[in-house]
C-alpha cells in the first residue's frame, strides 16, 4: 500500500470503525441520551452551537499555547541550569518532583484566589505549571548525559563552553526535548481545562462543557470532549511537524 495513503486511510478507518461500534452499542442497549450520548447525537449540537465552539476553542487554544510557550522557555532554562550544574540539579530535583506531585486541581482554587479576576492569566499559569516539568527534566537529562567525548572534540581545539552548548549540547538534546514537548502539549490542555472547569469564568471549551452539565445536555458535553480531542490532535501534530524540521536527523528510516 502507498505510504501516504496508508497514513491517512488507517486512522480514518479506525475512527469510523470505533464511532460505528459506539453508535451500535448505544442503539443496541437502548440507552437514552441522558445516560449515554451516541455520535449521531453530537452532530445537531455542533450545528446548533458552531459559533460558540469556534469562539471557545480559540480561547482554549491560545491560552494552552501561551502556557506551553512559557513552559518551553522556563523549562528549558531550568533544565539548562540543572543540566550544567550538579549542585543545582541535586538542589532542585526534590523540589521539582514534589511540585509535580501536587494535584493541579488543588492549585486551581489557590491561583484563582491569588489573582482574582485575572482569568486569562490564571489559565495560562495553570497550563504552564502543569506542563513545564517534563521539559525541564528532559533538557536537564539530555545535557547532563552528554558523553564527555562530545565535549572533548571541541574543547581540545580550544572551544568555549558557549560554543560547545550551541554546536553540540543543544542540538543533541533536541530529540529528548521534542519527546517531552509531546507530553507537555497534552498536559497543557489538561491545565487549561482544569482552570476552565474547576474555576468557571465563562471562557474556553471548559465553559461550554460546564453549561452542558448545568443544562443536563449530555450530548453537548460529549461534543466538547470531541472538540478537545481534535484540538489536542492538531497541537500534537504541530509538535511532530516541528520535530521533523529540527530533529528529523534522529529519526531512523524504517528497514
Amino acid at each position: 500500500m502507498n505510504d501516504t495513503l496508508r497514513k491517512i486511510l488507517a486512522p480514518t478507518l479506525f475512527i469510523v470503525g470505533i464511532l460505528a461500534l459506539w453508535e451500535w452499542a448505544v442503539w443496541y442497549n437502548q440507552l437514552p441520551d441522558y445516560r449515554m450520548a451516541s455520535p449521531s447525537d453530537l452532530i445537531p449540537r455542533y450545528i446548533r452551537f458552531w459559533d460558540l465552539f469556534l469562539i471557545k476553542s480559540w480561547e482554549t487554544l491560545w491560552r494552552t499555547v501561551a502556557g506551553l510557550g512559557l513552559a518551553v522557555v522556563f523549562g528549558t532554562l531550568v533544565g539548562m541550569i540543572m543540566g550544567f550544574s550538579r549542585f543545582a540539579r541535586e538542589g532542585l530535583y526534590p523540589i521539582l518532583v514534589g511540585f509535580n506531585a501536587i494535584p493541579k486541581a488543588t492549585v486551581v482554587p489557590i491561583v484563582a484566589l491569588m489573582f482574582v479576576g485575572q482569568h486569562d492569566f490564571n489559565t495560562v499559569l495553570i497550563a504552564f505549571i502543569i506542563s513545564f516539568f517534563p521539559i525541564a527534566v528532559s533538557v536537564s537529562i539530555g545535557l547532563s548525559t552528554l558523553e564527555p567525548e562530545y565535549r572533548d572534540i571541541l574543547r581540545s581545539l580550544g572551544a568555549s563552553n558557549v560554543t560547545i552548548f550551541w554546536k553540540i549540547a543543544l542540538p543533541k538534546t533536541l530529540p529528548e526535548f521534542f519527546g517531552a514537548l509531546k507530553v507537555a502539549v497534552t498536559l497543557a490542555f489538561i491545565g487549561t481545562n482544569l482552570m476552565e472547569i474547576v474555576s468557571p469564568h465563562g471562557r474556553g471549551l471548559g465553559d461550554l462543557f460546564d453549561s452542558g452539565r448545568i443544562n443536563a445536555d449530555y450530548p453537548l458535553m460529549f461534543a466538547v470532549l470531541f472538540a478537545l480531542a481534535a484540538l489536542g490532535i492538531v497541537l500534537f501534530y504541530v509538535v511532530v511537524f516541528l520535530e521533523r524540521i529540527f530533529a528529523g536527523w534522529a529519526e531512523r528510516s524504517p528497514g
Binding site: 567525548e149 572534540i153 574543547r155 581540545s156 581545539l157 554546536k167 543533541k172 536527523w249 534522529a250
Partner: peptide
C-alpha cells in the same frame, strides 16, 4: 587546549544532525 592538536577516540563521536 591548543588548536594545533587533532583528536580521535574509540567512539567516532560524529554529530548525527
Amino acid at each position: 587546549p591548543r588548536p594545533t592538536v587533532g583528536m580521535a577516540f574509540q567512539n567516532p563521536v560524529l554529530l548525527e544532525w
